[in-house]
Design a binder for these strands. Structure first.
Lengths: 185, 185
DNA sequence: ATATTTGTAAACTATATATTGTACAATGTT
DNA sequence: AACATTGTACAATATATAGTTTACAAATAT
């Protein structure tokens, strides 16, 4: 177990994990979260907070936080295994799916927030408009703003449809997954 | 100029700018950068560092940094106007294009980084493998790692094609822009 | 019932990121 | 040539984010 090549393999594995973490960074995911995802991914089996703590060298509390965040992002799940008292966590094993989950979480959130704001905001402009007695300048600016709103709404509608495009898997019809060459020696 | 409705319009405009900044946040863009983009966008005309500084209430140094970052991200440009000594900056006026630019910058960077790492890493595994005299366990793990690499490469190839899919505008064939209803009163 | 183990809240500390002020080189003005 | 203006490098400060420690409630074991 402690031989040279085995250590090298271990080290190489860790590099791979770092690469996964790095990839996550492009989603604005913190290095630690990415690393934990990588660790569980490479482990192939669900892991406990203690194991993760051991593997990262970080506190169990932090692992708890990170795991919860991953669950919120839909890239990890708590699994039950009878006889095991500790909570076990798995991660999505499919990179594409992880990509999509993150993309979706990210944008759905933005969409909701935007929608929420939208109504109040539009109403407000209309209120000003109906105030009566507006200088032509102001009147003009208000119309510009209303136009802007339309453009903005159209844009968000697009994002919304884009999210669906990913979620439904339709994206793969036009940007197909690449087949991985089998290799058995 | 100082009348009530004009102030309300001004305020509403600022809300819109905040919304734009908020949207940017989904790309991991800092609030300040988003706000500056929003400010220039709403201004419709190129702006100078001093104007931005005035508009944000932040230092000119910061504006300089932010503007440069935006240029790196391909969502802003320096424009020249004869007779004007100060540098002027515009931003992309098309939301879709901004979305795409950010998406591209983000992932191209990740792709490059990954590619760079890839060769070294794969070579390393092969080196271990050719070392000879490996325990069956280690041998097995190495094969697993090589397989993992294949999967990873396929995934990155997909991302790469996905980026092209956006960059080329093909995405709009399948997730079309929504037409904004004209409105003239 | 009592004692252990587990996960997480809450308050704290450390580290990273955002922002500013000063200084200066480059360019334009008189 | 002397002077003013502009943009940014660099060091210093402030703020936000990541991580730890302690404490405790809920669940399990003895």
């Amino acid at each position: 177990m402690g031989d040279v090549s085995s250590n090298m393999v271990e080290q190489t594995k860790e590099h791979f994990i770092e690469k996964i973490a790095d990839n996550m960074r492009a989603f604005g995911i913190s290095p630690t979260l990415g690393r934990v995802l990588g660790i569980i991914y490479m482990n192939k089996e669900p892991m406990t907070l203690d194991q993760l703590s051991e593997a990262t060298g970080m506190s169990k509390t932090r692992m708890s936080q990170v795991v919860r965040e991953m669950i919120d992002l839909n890239i990890a799940d708590k699994v039950f295994e009878k006889g095991v008292r500790k909570d076990l966590y798995t991660v999505e094993q499919d990179y594409y799916q992880t990509f999509i989950s993150l993309f979706i979480s990210n944008w759905r959130q933005a969409i909701n927030k935007s929608r929420l704001f939208e109504q109040k905001w539009r109403q407000r402009i209309l209120d000003i408009k109906n105030e009566g007695s507006l200088s032509p300048d102001v009147e003009n600016e208000i119309n510009e703003l209303l136009k802007e709103t339309q453009i903005w709404l159209a844009y968000y509608d697009w994002i919304s449809r884009l999210v669906d495009f990913f979620e439904s898997g339709e994206v793969f019809k036009h940007v197909p997954k690449k087949r991985v060459p089998e290799f058995e020696e």
